[in-house]
């Protein structure tokens, strides 16, 4: 019988990690919903953002949370530009090509990172890295709780954008009815790029929240993108609620898996859940039933 005092902190820690997964998955699901592709460059863009946070801190002494204000707009612009130039031009309007182009971008970014920064593991030193708060039944890492809160703020802002603004409505319109969107005068290419930019901005936000308690290497994105993809399928491709709930769920599953099966086997739980979802609910928890 496992004790309450072990189980509860494990669940809470899972939720804290899960919020980061959710944030990365939100970007991935947004891009999927609009462009109908899995963005293979997602992990590489996360890695690039983490290096951004790292260098802003180590070279300019900028705190990771302050770096949000720089990196989120910068990565948005990079994402917008990538879609508008490289992806749109190389794809010739074919979804399969877009997929391959994003894979190419991922390879290029990763190899450039390896070339310039080697495969060293880097961390930053922030004074609050090991601060904890005592909530009675558990000690919680302050930067991870901050990340949890911030992830929800970002998700909330995204929700407001998608439901309350013309841009958000246009993004949702393009996702389901491109021709209809052109007819009302929506510049579909612009909306594609905005979606890719916002998806990339989500990853930048995740990077700023992650690095105070994590590390960066040129390969760090891969593990995250695999989990984020699982989250997106679990939650339902293209569903925002699904990405949020799925992210938290996967965080908890991973944490409990680590508790019961040990650190190295912990991730097996994630893939068991993934397979179970594909078997019993292929459209995901919140996906549109086909």
């Amino acid at each position: 019988m496992l004790e309450f005092t072990i189980l509860v902190p494990a669940v809470i820690n899972g939720l804290l990690t899960g919020s980061i997964y959710a944030l990365i998955a939100l970007g991935l699901t947004l891009i999927y919903g609009v462009l109908h592709i899995i963005n293979f460059a997602h992990g590489a863009l996360l890695m690039l953002s983490l290096f951004g946070v790292y260098f802003l801190h180590s070279l300019a002494g900028i705190d990771p949370y302050v770096a949000l204000l720089i990196l989120v707009p910068a990565m948005f612009a990079l994402g917008y530009g990538l879609q508008r130039t490289v992806i749109a031009h190389a794809s010739h309007g074919k979804d399969e090509n877009v997929l391959l182009v994003t894979l190419g971008i991922a390879l290029i970014i990763e190899n450039l990172a390896l070339f310039f920064w080697r495969s060293d593991t880097r961390t930053i030193d922030v004074p609050y890295a090991f601060d904890v708060i005592d909530v009675g039944f558990a000690f919680l890492s302050v930067p991870r709780v901050a990340a949890f809160g911030a992830a929800f703020v970002v998700a909330g802002l995204l929700w407001v954008l998608m439901t309350r603004s013309d841009l958000g409505r246009a993004i949702r319109a393009v996702a389901k009815e491109r021709h209809g969107a052109r007819v009302v005068g929506i510049d579909v290419d612009h909306i594609f790029a905005m979606s890719y930019g916002i998806g990339t901005a989500c990853v930048a936000a995740a990077a700023c929240l992650l690095l105070p308690t994590f590390y960066v290497t040129p390969q760090v994105g891969n593990a995250f993108v695999l989990i984020a993809f699982t989250v997106v399928v679990l939650g339902g491709m293209g569903s925002f609620t699904g990405a949020l709930v799925g992210g938290l769920l996967i965080g908890v599953v991973e944490s409990l898996g680590g508790l019961f099966l040990g650190e190295t086997l912990g991730q097996i739980g994630i893939f068991l859940v993934f397979i179970a979802v594909l078997l019993f609910r292929p459209t995901g928890l919140f996906g549109d039933r086909a």
Binding site: R172, A173, A181
Partner: peptide, 9 residues
């Protein structure tokens, strides 16, 4: 447009 092309979602 032909076929209405409203935004179903």
């Amino acid at each position: 447009p032909e076929g209405r092309r409203i935004f179903p979602n």
